[in-house]
Write a protein that binds this DNA or RNA. Sequence first.
DNA 1: TATGAATGAGGGTTCATTCAT
DNA 2: GATGAATGAACCCTCATTCAT
Lengths: 206, 206, 206, 206
Amino acid sequence: MIHQSLKEKQRQEREELILQATQELLLERGYYETSMGEIAQRVGVAKGTLYQHFESKEALMIALFKSEFHDLHVAIENIAGMQVGAQEKISLMIDTLCYHLAEKHPVFFIMRNASDLEAEIHEEIKEYFNGIRAQISVILDGGKAEGIFNASLPTEVMMEALFGIIVSRLFKNFHQGQQVTYEDLVGHLKCIYFHGITAPTPAPAG
Amino acid sequence: MIHQSLKEKQRQEREELILQATQELLLERGYYETSMGEIAQRVGVAKGTLYQHFESKEALMIALFKSEFHDLHVAIENIAGMQVGAQEKISLMIDTLCYHLAEKHPVFFIMRNASDLEAEIHEEIKEYFNGIRAQISVILDGGKAEGIFNASLPTEVMMEALFGIIVSRLFKNFHQGQQVTYEDLVGHLKCIYFHGITAPTPAPAG
Amino acid sequence: MIHQSLKEKQRQEREELILQATQELLLERGYYETSMGEIAQRVGVAKGTLYQHFESKEALMIALFKSEFHDLHVAIENIAGMQVGAQEKISLMIDTLCYHLAEKHPVFFIMRNASDLEAEIHEEIKEYFNGIRAQISVILDGGKAEGIFNASLPTEVMMEALFGIIVSRLFKNFHQGQQVTYEDLVGHLKCIYFHGITAPTPAPAG
Amino acid sequence: MIHQSLKEKQRQEREELILQATQELLLERGYYETSMGEIAQRVGVAKGTLYQHFESKEALMIALFKSEFHDLHVAIENIAGMQVGAQEKISLMIDTLCYHLAEKHPVFFIMRNASDLEAEIHEEIKEYFNGIRAQISVILDGGKAEGIFNASLPTEVMMEALFGIIVSRLFKNFHQGQQVTYEDLVGHLKCIYFHGITAPTPAPAG
DNA sequence: TATGAATGAGGGTTCATTCAT
DNA sequence: GATGAATGAACCCTCATTCAT
């Protein structure tokens, strides 16, 4: 029994290592430039071993995706459960999503460019995202109810814009050498999200 | 002479067809899933023919990219030259960029996932983008000078947010069936861009 | 009539140009590295034109081969008809063969490495060579009869050795920087051919 | 351990088989007519297997070349170390070189016609050959010192002639059906090498 | 007749996957 | 269970040859 669970534990650990190596390589090279051989090499096992943990390259990617999504889900649940205002929650959401989607983005890479994958798990991904969207929706609607957010904007649109902020990070490579730090940038982006770029109307004179 | 130009014209037309088919397939499948064979098949020519027009798969992609970027460039120049206010210009910019980058987006696909390509044209792409960014910067700065835009926000950040709005369209596949039309959506996104999602402060009573 | 022969003459000239360009490229690059396109380009005509003069790449090579062999044949006939001694004739033969086979060697290149060609014209080549061999045989046998050449050596072997001298030139690339000129080298080789490398036996002492 | 060496042994064996099949095909068809597919087929393995042993077609050829040259090198070292006279040594050298270069000649084929290869290993080949030439030089110079060889002939020329004898075997295909056996032929060629074709001067009548 | 774009078979190479050890 | 050599389908690309203009 104990042996069993020990073995099982080792198996889990190895699986974890594989996923980790996969994520690293995915970030470094992309899906197609990452071969099973390279993954095996980085983990320090034989190619065949990968196939004892994951049925195929595709399956490995899906597993990685789910694993990452799980982390994201947990983080989001945490935020949703906090006792803070709607704006603060949305702000934290943005930080979290930025980290998980933009910084650890292979998730997006995989999906967008491996059309086989898309076919396989597209529906599942959609559901995952919809779960997140639902939680954000609740917060946004709450904010509207509180009178904090602009009730005339469809919640869905607010969400869209929120994702836009996050996603823009994915393309940072194509922007010239940034003069603002990442933290500042996100701060400003949130500012735009909450207040827009329009100049604040001066207080009506006396 | 006439014969010359006829042949030349046919050549141009075929080249156009190849680029078109390539774009379609790129959108349908992505860079790696699109083989030269498939492109040829879709155009209805032999594989070898592709190589008479483009030196390699890579060259074909670069040509496609440049062709699309050219269209975008022209559109942007037009807007930049218009005699309208800064906000209107930015609004038109968003529409144009949405159309060119998000709707006809293979341009982005190619770049993000074909690392061979990146090496080859990354710098060139950067320059193209920087050109666009420069033009937008001018407009944003103009708006700040006019007192229309919030001068305390770095121009660069405004741009980042602007791209975020556009780019979010790329991931629309992962959003559930939209209840708002695309036009409405963009309209709202612009609204957020200009005013944020915060509820307008009620006019001070009395 | 005159027009006919003028056209015919032009045709001949063009054919000559093609053969010449082919030979050059063959020498520069070898058979497989020389494409029909390159030949056409060097001649300054379209690829299709080549095919109006020669049925195929193979046919072109065979034609080139025959053309070169014809030159060699003429040169050899000349020597054979001279009124000089056997050794002088053989000496001239060596010079001629060195020039035609070793210096203008594509003939050999083609044959040895394009096995399709070999199949096609192997017999013909053999006959050509046999013709040359026959003429040399006559001279060698004459020399034997005159008591100039060693009658105990089979004529065939003498010939083999003669070809060896010539052929060695083909591999000159793999020898280090020669310190002797080509002319000297051939002179010495002939010396070896006629006298061997053994030190001359000193005249028996008184 | 034993398992290790078993696998390693099998690997070696297969590699040997590949080299052998390659050599055969090279002899039958030449470099360009020999495709990796054909080699694989002859060995009875999949194309991909070849690439597990050799990085590329070129690498395979180079490996073959080195393998053959190694055998030759060993054979030559043996002769050089023998306790026999200079002429005997040269005679053995000729036999050895005839066997290795003329009978198992793909080595030469490859070099002469695959210009990609030349670039890659031309220098290396030159060095190999120079090594052999150096050893022969020593013997020839020794022979000169002993008064056995004609000291008025440059050593380099003697060598050239020696290679000529050997190389002539490469073109045997173009000679008619030989009436002398190969062994006889080589014997005679050596005779020519040592004594030339000139009739021996009759002993001065006493 | 000259042209050169189109053709498509064939070549070298890669890599996810399998399976004997 | 772990290994890594073997597999073979699929890919990008070349080039001799054809044929409409």
